[in-house]
């Protein structure tokens, strides 16, 4: 463990908590993409199957259980409890166009051709693009509530911090995984225009308005 990865995990946890607070306090999931939340749940389930086979640490097991349970809870809140506030019309991204290519790519480019490894690789590729429905929704509605933009900033920062973690681990431990690094780089790049808007607008107290 290093400071970059710990900061990344905490930023990730913060994002998930911010999302739950937004939905619970406003009793609405307006402006949130249910499709992205479904993709995140698939990412965590397919990545954390090793929960039952490998014990790394209490921290590792605890965080995996938190990520899986909160992602399922978010989907429940969006599609059941606050279903009436879910923005079906704008949340129209076809996630099969992400699921199928990621799975096929995982079959082609992976570290080992075993079920657990293929699923881990699939989850890494899927996580890189899982935010697309959410960014697509924000671009269609043209704006986002400030707490939603804080959620996106924390979520985008987590993988950016992981990039620093991988640089650190390469030099400190000689450990690296090109699949995780390339996917993490793409994932972070997808947030760049949002990061720009967040820093130039939201941090100045303005609302996140995308140029129409």
């Amino acid at each position: 463990m290093n400071i970059f990865r710990l900061a990344g995990d905490l930023s990730h946890l913060l994002a998930i908590i911010l999302l739950l607070i937004k939905i619970w306090k406003t009793r609405s999931c307006a402006g949130i993409s249910g499709k992205s939340q479904i993709l995140f749940a698939i990412v965590y389930v397919s990545r954390y199957l090793d929960l039952v086979t490998t014990f790394i640490s209490v921290y590792n097991t605890f965080m995996k259980l938190v990520f899986i349970s909160t992602s399922v809870a978010t989907i429940y809140l969006m599609y059941v409890k606050f279903k009436a506030t879910y923005d079906h019309n704008h949340d129209s991204f076809r996630i099969e166009f992400l699921l199928v290519p990621c799975f096929l790519l995982a079959l082609l480019i992976n570290n080992a051709f075993t079920p657990l490894e293929i699923l881990w690789t699939f989850s890494i590729y899927l996580e890189a693009v899982a935010i697309l429905p959410q960014l697509f929704l924000v671009s269609k509605t043209g704006e986002a509530e400030s707490i939603t933009s804080h959620y996106l900033f924390a979520l985008g920062s987590y993988r950016a911090l992981y990039l620093l973690n991988w640089i650190y681990r390469y030099y400190a431990e000689g450990h690296y995984d090109l699949i995780a690094i390339f996917a993490g780089a793409i994932q972070t790049i997808l947030y760049c225009d949002f990061f720009y808007l967040y820093i130039t607008k939201v941090l100045k107290g303005k609302k996140l308005q995308l140029p129409a």
Binding site: R5, D9, H12, D50, T54, I56, S57, N60, M63, K64, F67, N111, W120, Y162, N165, R169, E173, H175, Y176, D177, A180
Partner: peptide, 10 residues
């Protein structure tokens, strides 16, 4: 990359 090393990340 050692097996455990790679899989100790979230």
């Amino acid at each position: 990359a050692n097996r455990l090393g790679k899989k100790d990340e979230l």
